[in-house]
């Protein structure tokens, strides 16, 4: 197995695979390494309907096609990598695997994306898959004619709340603020739905039940009034957390853990670039991830050329 590369990309979501495509097409040796499966968050989307040029597709199909394209240009792609250590500070960057293999590169692209944020409250882990879910399309039909709650107040939360009314007898949206952080048309659609009610300004304290989820406990942040919402299911959509722990002590991060980059997507370390959801930016979509992957790869190629000059 080859261990020395021009560029190593951490993460095989849309940002990482795009970086792989551009860098390999420029005849550089490239390894895209992922600690999980190929595709990142796109695998969690049944339908991607807003990726230009391909019509409606599944996240899986889209990422498999990106994978094939990257491999066709000679890019090495490895899933389920067991990474023991990442050293980005030296001139030659080293990723050490748990079996002791040291993978080195002159430039690294951090494309490790993010994962859905959890509430981190009592009972969340215990009732995971036993009432608590993070995927409406996957698990909505388990709650046919049963009352559920949706925690969150952004676009995803409200869109999914509306979608879940196809199954559930009633949906209580529990949100931490007085106002939603969603597009006006989504808010209007949720408000117009007779099956949806709203509990605003709530701090979720925990989940309770026996073998299965029975209730969500929350408290009004202003009045302190406690509420117990009796539900059979609860879907949590409260944003995402960037996957930056593995290199948090080496590159500059925002207080939310997002990687800070300049216009060329270079991080605070020379030769280390960041692309996609892991970096500080406003819009997190497949289109913006592939755009980032492009910019980061081209900047990494320029970095390599300048070193050689």
């Amino acid at each position: 197995m080859r261990t020395d590369y021009d560029i190593i990309v951490l993460g095989a979501g849309p940002a990482g695979l795009t970086a792989g495509i551009y860098a390999a097409r420029a005849h550089r040796s490239v390894l895209v390494l992922d600690t999980g499966t190929i595709g990142g968050q796109t695998v969690l989307s049944y339908h991607v309907a807003n990726y230009p040029g391909v019509g409606e597709t599944s996240g899986r199909a889209l990422s498999q096609s990106m994978l094939q394209q990257a491999r066709a240009f000679g890019c090495d792609v490895k899933a389920f990598a067991r990474i023991a250590n990442i050293d980005l500070t030296a001139r030659r960057k080293t990723i050490t695997l748990k079996d002791g293999t040291a993978l080195t590169a002159t430039a690294v692209v951090l494309a490790s994306g993010g994962v859905p944020r959890k509430l981190g409250v009592e009972g969340e882990q215990r009732f995971g898959g036993r009432g608590i879910s993070y995927c409406a399309t996957c698990d909505g039909d388990f709650f046919t004619d049963r009352p559920i709650a949706v925690v969150g107040g952004g676009n995803s939360a409200l869109e999914e709340a509306v979608a879940l009314t196809r199954y559930a007898s009633h949906v209580t949206v529990i949100h931490e603020f007085e106002h939603f952080q969603a597009e006006p048309w989504i808010i209007a659609e949720a408000r117009a739905n007779e099956k949806i009610s709203f509990l605003m300004n709530q701090r979720v304290l925990g989940f309770s039940g026996g073998a299965e989820l029975a209730a969500v406990q929350s408290v009004d942040k202003q009045t302190g009034v406690a509420t117990e919402t009796h539900v059979d299911g609860c879907f949590v959509f409260i944003g995402y957390v960037p996957n930056s722990d593995a290199f948090a002590d080496q590159v500059k991060l925002t207080e939310r853990g997002e990687v800070v980059t300049d216009d060329t997507l270079q991080t605070s370390l020379p030769g280390v670039f960041a692309a996609g959801d892991v970096r500080q930016k406003r819009v997190r979509q497949v289109t913006t991830a592939v755009a980032d992957g492009t910019i980061a790869a081209l900047a990494a190629l320029e970095f390599l050329s300048e070193l050689a000059a």
Binding site: V43, L44, S45, Y46, A79, F80, C135, T137, C138
Partner: peptide, 16 residues
């Protein structure tokens, strides 16, 4: 499972 979001990663893990 189904050929859906939460299932695909588990099949991938098993294959690997």
């Amino acid at each position: 499972g189904r050929m859906g979001p939460m299932c695909l990663p588990v099949y991938d893990v098993m294959e690997a």
